[in-house]
């Protein structure tokens, strides 16, 4: 168990005490197998119990521990301390979100936007449960599957320059989920979602920097979803223009 020495510069902010955030430095001797989250937990348990941050699953699926590590949005539980061995590493709360306290950011904005894209199956007629499942071929499943893998960690919002410049923008994760339902063979809600997506702050604020997809720790490709959505939204707009808008 050889040790990895890490110098963590963690951004601290307590609204009850601080006018603005400041960095605080912690030296941590890490075990080789540790993730950056383990190093932060070590600080919390052994050095400074006042440090606040979110975490839970430690297996990159709950999406709690998104933060800026060395300037990039990452899940702290998914990056090895070895990647930063013997370096100064800046740990900051996710970019583009207000800081609530230390590494904890305010996420209300995303929660509101997620709701607006209607991320659920919309049908004109429900098939009764007794009639069994909706049939869906493996190919139909595969069509939208990757977009179901979003864990809502918000790394993509932290990576998105358009969200930084225009906070009204719906943003990558919410829109990728809209696309996920639009392309689900069981769904018939495209026209209804179109109302929200076709607003200026819907799909159109995306300028396709692709940085959301680069940042995604779950290998989802929101940038691709966004481009496909723009095409679908355009088609739907032309359809509505000639009076054939209802899917």
């Amino acid at each position: 168990m050889s040790a990895v020495q890490l110098e963590l510069e963690i951004l601290r902010y307590d609204p009850e005490k601080d006018q603005e955030p400041h960095f605080q430095t912690y030296q941590v001797a890490c075990q080789e197998e540790w993730m950056v989250l383990d190093a932060i937990n070590h600080v919390k348990d052994e050095v400074d119990t006042t440090l606040s941050y979110r975490w839970s699953c430690h297996m990159a699926v709950c999406g709690s521990c998104g933060m800026m590590i060395d300037g990039q949005p990452k899940l702290a539980c998914k990056v090895s301390v070895k990647d930063y061995a013997n370096k100064k590493v800046r740990i900051e709360p996710l970019a583009n979100f207000p800081i609530e306290r230390d590494l904890v950011v305010v996420q209300d904005d995303f929660m509101e936007k997620l709701k607006r894209v209607k991320p659920y199956i919309i049908r004109k007629e429900e098939q009764p449960i007794e009639a069994g499942e909706y049939k869906q071929s493996p190919a139909e499943l595969k069509k939208f599957k990757q977009f179901t893998l979003c864990i809502n960690c918000l790394c993509c919002y932290a990576a998105c320059p358009e969200y930084a410049l225009t906070p009204e923008f719906m943003g990558p994760a919410a829109l990728a989920l809209a696309h996920r339902y639009n392309t689900d063979s069981r769904d018939q809600g495209l026209a209804e979602r179109h109302k929200e997506l076709s607003k200026p702050e819907g799909v159109w604020d995306c300028s396709f920097t692709d940085t959301c997809s680069i940042a995604c720790p779950k290998h989802v490709d929101p940038a691709s979803a966004l481009q496909q959505l723009k095409i679908a939204t355009t088609v739907q707009w032309y359809k509505e223009l000639i009076g054939m808008g209802d899917k």
């Binding site: 076709s198 607003k199 159109w204 939204t233 355009t234 707009w237």
Partner: peptide, 8 residues
Amino acid sequence: KVNKALFW
């Protein structure tokens, strides 16, 4: 709304 889809 019109402009965005058309122009895009």
